[in-house]
Amino acid sequence: MHPILKLVAQRVSLGLVLLLAASALIFIGVELLPGDVAQSILGQSATETSLRNLREELGLNEPALTRYFNWLFAALQGDLGTALTNGQSISKAVGERLGNTLFLAFWAAIISVPLAIILGLIAVRYRNRWPDKLISGITLSTISLPEFVAGYLLMYLLTVQFRVFSPISTIYAGMSLGEKLSAIALPVMVLVLVVLAHMMRMTRAAILNVMQSAYIETAELKGLRPFVIIARHAFPNAVAPVVNVVMLNLAYLVVGVVVVEVVFVYPGMGQYLVDHVTKRDLPVVQACGLIFAAVYIGLNIMADVISILANPRLRHPK
């Protein structure tokens, strides 16, 4: 077997083990919460008998280990259980919400990742001169601004002052792609502003690190243009650290955008999770936790795999 396949297989299996551990942690965490699911469904006035019957029905009397494996196997088959609050299938609700979240994250990523890398390259090209300082200054101030402030500012500018977009980003089935894109324009802008600085700074730092190498001097002595040196000779050797930060930010775009969703009334995973946390709907919390963990671990494995593939020593062994 090609050694690289082995390495990749190792990473993927490690990721699966990690996901299993995460699922156990989530289950234990929820288990440790005080209170009783039956009690929270039926309310304070429930009688002992009805509580006992409901516990029986929900399988709450089984030992924790059995319930954990039941939950896990069901989740593996795509059944995340039913929400306590409305008795609906969690999988169905989550499927819709996750689709929306991924739609938003996808467009934010498509814009922010190339933009961050290009800005990083430009910052290196003009390091310590005004373009570098300007890029650093702007991206750092946008990351320092809380998301809701940026959100309301943009909303004020682009919906109140200039009526370009709608302040409500709700999307629903039946909208055309154009309508959807117009609806999510504002939240996408806010998310881009939030994740840009981190990726740009990492690209800049990783390339500057590589710029110290002897082969960069070789390239300079070949009479190559500065930007060619950075893009063709330095960047390919800085891919690994950049990819790691990009993936962390992509994960953030999927799991960490609650505030933006609330500000723009966007029907995504974050809002769904927060709604059900306040209602103490534990099966939903558990399901969302599992999905978020899977997203994080999946993206980080992808970062690892890309880093491995970007290393010529691993790709082309002796």
Binding site: Y215, T218, E220, L221, K222, L224, N237
Partner: peptide, 25 residues
Amino acid sequence: GLRALRGHEVTYVAQSAAAAFNPAK
């Protein structure tokens, strides 16, 4: 002008070729 000179009229061989070659190409 210097870019036209370097790598065309005058070229360079470094002490450590192992470091002077780009590992990714």
